[in-house]
Structures are given as C-alpha cells and as structure tokens.
Nucleic acid binder design. Structure first.
Lengths: 156, 156
DNA sequence: AATTATCCTACTTTTAAAGTGGGAATATTA
DNA sequence: TAATATTCCCACTTTAAAAGTAGGATAATT
C-alpha cells in the first residue's frame, strides 16, 4: 500500500514548477538538481506529465518545461493518475468490479471501493495552490530561488 | 498504490472465519477451497494472523483456525497492519517523517500523511461485523454453508 | 499406528519498480 | 552555419518485492 516513486516524484516536480510558475521554462537538469533526483528518471516523469497535458515543453537552449495552466488548475489526484501505473487499491476497487469473478458476492470489494473513493475524493480536491499555501504556513514565504538559480529570470 | 494480495486475501480469510465463527475450527484446506486460493499461500497468511493474535490454531485432525474474539473485535485496519509489508503510502507518511532529509521543508510529505491518516481512520473504524451486515444487505442472509461443507457442524 | 492438521524455514518464480543509455529531433546562441 | 543545449523516444538493465512452492517437523485425533 504505497505510492511509487514515480507518483511521489511527480508531485514534487509539479510543486517545483508551481513554485516557479512565473519563471518561464525550467529544464530537467535544474529540477533534478534542486529536488535531488536522477535527471534521466525525471525525464521519464516529465514525459508522462506532458502526455497528460499537465505541462508543456520547449526544446533547445533555455527551453524546458512549465505548467500549461496556473497552479490552481491542478489537483494531486490528476498528477497521480497521470504518473502511477496502478491507480487502484485492488483490481476490484473499480465500480465495475474489474475481472474478479467473485465480485458480486464478495464484500471485501466494497471495502476497497470505499477506500478508493475516499482517497480520490481527498486528492481530487487538493490543488497545488492549496499545497503552496500550506508550504508558506510551514516555512514563511521563501523567495530565495534566484540566489540558487541566478540564470532564471522572473517574468511578469 | 495497491494493497498486496496478502492483505486482500487476509481480509477475505478473516471474513470467512467471521461468517463461520460459530462453526469451531476451520482448516486451511477448507478456507482455500472456498475462497479459491492456494492452500500454501493461505498458510503463510494464517501464520501472520496467528502471530498478531488475531486467530488461534489447533493442530491435528479436526483442527484448524478460529478468531480469538468475536467479529466485532476486529477492524480491517488491524488485519491489514498484521499482513501487509508496507502499511505506509510513502516513507515520509509517518508523523516522524521517516528517513527523508527533505522532510522538514517538503510539503508533499504532508499530503501523504493526510492520505495515511484518512485511510487509517476509515479502516480502523470498519469492523468485520460491519462487513457482515453489509453482506447481508447485499445478498440476503446466506446460510447454505452446510450444504457445501457438510462435515462442519454448527455449535452453540 | 495412521491420519490430519498446523508450524516453520527456505526456496523459486514472476512481476513491477526504479533507474540507465544513447541517439534523433529541435531550438537557441555565437 | 556550427556548436550547444535542450526535449523526445525507445529500449535496456538492475533491483526489489510480490506471489507462490516445497518439504519436513510437530502435534492432535481417530
């Protein structure tokens, strides 16, 4: 019962992009360095996020990625759905019961459906903006990024 | 983000034992047959449940397993905790943040903690009795077990 | 004594997670 | 136009965990 690194890293990456939403395009190299992740692995994750249209890319020098929309448009649920291979707690956690032949008489399926819908409800209603707000409460407003990544210029 | 077969089967096994709570000791062979699971694998699961004191065993002919307490004493949470290897959604889903060095500044940890506590709350408050009641609503009271397992005698 | 069960430990197989490698395509800069 | 910096894409490797097996020791019943 664990979210894989793909989903967890994806959330961190999306949070990073949300924090730097006004900085324009950000490269995998920078994200990987700041988040202390393997660049190649981050690339894989970016691929999934791009295919799900959560982010946009520009190639070449000074290219990189950015959110396609402002942070408030993204729920954690969306991000997990786009990156995790198994989104379900059990094969029968779907409302159609999946392929299990015992589905109709098996009450444990109802348990997994309940867990499933509870978690989905929670994550679908939690946006990146919510998380950024939580982070500010946790740390105070951090705006030191330019000191660490001086080549990034804030745009308006 | 999936509960392993160990945890899922364990729930089914415990539900089976709960349904047959008044039938005395029930063997792995019978459980495996009725639930359509590998007997050897069920044995492994029984071992975990026994070590967690959720069930008791008697060896030898007409031996088997039974719940140590009545069904109302068991929550789904307990059963999962006893059988799953990873009970956490992320290494940092614990209130102590686990071993992640980014824990203090990383807001995504808060997300996993929130999911964690939500699911725990849900599963800890869902008892086998609740599930048996749900099952009756789903199917009507099923009491045909003696036809399938005639060697089992109902005791009072 | 034979049978029916749990107990226990170790092993095998299968699957998915996690991460790498390298070259093609594309954009920018000098 | 050449060099450079990036994404893009596909295939591959490694590692770890899930899933399931095997077999003999122990204990209770018949």
């Amino acid at each position: 019962m664990r979210v894989s690194t793909k989903g967890r890293y994806a959330l961190r990456v999306m949070l990073y992009l949300a924090e730097h939403y006004t900085f324009g395009y950000i490269s995998v190299k920078d994200i990987a360095k700041e988040e202390d992740l393997s660049p190649k692995y981050v690339e894989q994750i970016m691929c999934k996020l791009t295919k799900a249209s959560l982010i946009m890319a520009v190639r070449g020098a000074h290219g990189g990625y950015r959110l396609t929309n402002s942070p408030s448009h993204y729920s954690v649920g969306q991000i997990i759905k786009a990156t995790e291979s198994y989104t379900e707690f059990a094969p029968c956690a779907n409302s159609d019961g999946g392929t299990c032949p015992r589905y109709k008489k098996c009450i444990s399926a109802d348990v997994w459906q309940l867990v499933q819908s509870t978690v989905e409800e929670l994550l679908n209603n939690l946006t990146l903006t919510d998380l950024l707000r939580m982070q500010q409460n946790k740390l105070g407003t951090p705006s030191l990024y330019l000191t660490y990544l001086p080549h990034l210029k804030k745009i308006d």
